[in-house]
C-alpha cells in the first residue's frame, strides 16, 4: 500500500473537518460583523465585544453560571468519588444493584423528565418546609443530582483499574484506612478527579433544560439568556459571546493536551533511562 494519501482520503478529511468546525468558524467570523442583523455581512467591526461587557444582564448570567458550575461540580465530584469508590471496592452489600442503578439513572433519564420531577419535588418541599426558594440553590441541587452520575462512572472505572495492592501495602505498613484513602488513593486518582470535575462543570455550564425547570427569577444563567435572546432574533453580541467561549475552551483543551504530551514524553524518556541504567 502506498504511503501517499489518495485524493479521496484528503477529500474526506476536508469534508469531515468542514462538517465539524464550519459552524464554529462561521460564528467566529460573524462575531466581527458590523451589521446589526447577525446573518447579513456588513463589514468588519469589533464593536460587539465591548457591547458585551456593557451588557449587565449577560454578565450577571455569566456569573450565575460560573457559581452554579463551580459549586455543583465540586459537590458532585465529592459525592461521585465516594459513590464510585463504594461501587468499585465493596462488591457485595445489600442493595448494591439498586444503588448502582439509581446513581446512574439520571444518565439515561430524559432531561425533561429529570427537570420536571425536580421541579415537583422543590415545589412540594417548599409547601411542606418552606424551603428551598427557587433560585441558585435549587439549580445547584439539580445540577449536583445529574452531574453526580457522570463523576460516579468516571471514578468507578478509575478505582476498578487501581491496583488494590497499593492500598493493601499502605495498610500493611501501618496506615489506617482513612489515612490510606487520603494519602495513597486520592493522590493516585487525582487526574481522574480533576477530569470528573471538569466534566461536571462543563455539563452544568451548558445545561438549559433542567435549569429552566428549576430556576427562579433573578438567577438566570448564560444558556437561558442566550436561548431567550436567540428566540428574539440572533444578536451579533451572542456571536461575540460564543467566540469568547470557543476561545476559552480551545485554550484549555490545547494547553492540557500540551502539558499531558510533555509529561508523557518525559515519562517515556525516564523509562528508557531506567532500562538502560540497569542491565
Amino acid at each position: 500500500m502506498s504511503n501517499r494519501l489518495s485524493w479521496f482520503i484528503i477529500l474526506m478529511l476536508v469534508v469531515g473537518f468542514i462538517f465539524l468546525y464550519g459552524p464554529m468558524v462561521s460564528v467566529v467570523i460573524y462575531s466581527f460583523n458590523d451589521n446589526k442583523l447577525a446573518t447579513l455581512w456588513g463589514g468588519f467591526s469589533t464593536r460587539w465585544y465591548p457591547a458585551l461587557l456593557a451588557n449587565d444582564q449577560m454578565l450577571r448570567a455569566a456569573k450565575h453560571s460560573l457559581i452554579i458550575g463551580v459549586v455543583s461540580a465540586t459537590f458532585a465530584t465529592t459525592f461521585g468519588t465516594i459513590a464510585g469508590y463504594v461501587l468499585a471496592r465493596y462488591r457485595k452489600f445489600r442493595g448494591r444493584t439498586l444503588f448502582s442503578g439509581m446513581v446512574t439513572a439520571p444518565l439515561v433519564m430524559p432531561e425533561v423528565i429529570t427537570g420536571l420531577s425536580l421541579l415537583l419535588l422543590f415545589v412540594a418541599m417548599k409547601d411542606l418546609f418552606g424551603w428551598p426558594n427557587r433560585g441558585l440553590m435549587t439549580v445547584i441541587l439539580a445540577h449536583i443530582t445529574f452531574t453526580l452520575s457522570y463523576v460516579t462512572i468516571v471514578m468507578q472505572s478509575r478505582f476498578t483499574t487501581l491496583d488494590i495492592s497499593l492500598e493493601e501495602a499502605a495498610l500493611d505498613l501501618g496506615a489506617r484506612p482513612l489515612k490510606v484513602f487520603m494519602v495513597i488513593t486520592l493522590p493516585i486518582v487525582a487526574p481522574a478527579i480533576i477530569s470528573g470535575w471538569l466534566l461536571s462543570f462543563t455539563i452544568s455550564l451548558d445545561d438549559l433544560v433542567i435549569t429552566s425547570y428549576t430556576n427562579g427569577p433573578g438567577s438566570t444563567t448564560l444558556p437561558q439568556v442566550i436561548f431567550s435572546a436567540v428566540r428574539l432574533g440572533v444578536n451579533p453580541s451572542i456571536n461575540a459571546l460564543a467566540t469568547i467561549i470557543i476561545a476559552v475552551v480551545a485554550f484549555g483543551v490545547v494547553t492540557s493536551h500540551i502539558l499531558m504530551t510533555r509529561a508523557e514524553r518525559r515519562r517515556q524518556r525516564d523509562i528508557q533511562m531506567a532500562l538502560q541504567s540497569n542491565k
Binding site: S165, L166, E168, A169, L171, D172, R176, I184, P187, I188
Partner: peptide
C-alpha cells in the same frame, strides 16, 4: 487484629510501590 496493627510486613508480587 487489622493489617495495620499486625507485626508483619509484606512484599507484594506486583511490588505495589506508591507511584506518586
Amino acid at each position: 487484629i487489622p493489617p495495620y496493627e499486625r507485626p508483619t510486613n509484606m512484599m507484594f508480587q506486583s511490588y505495589a510501590l506508591f507511584p506518586h
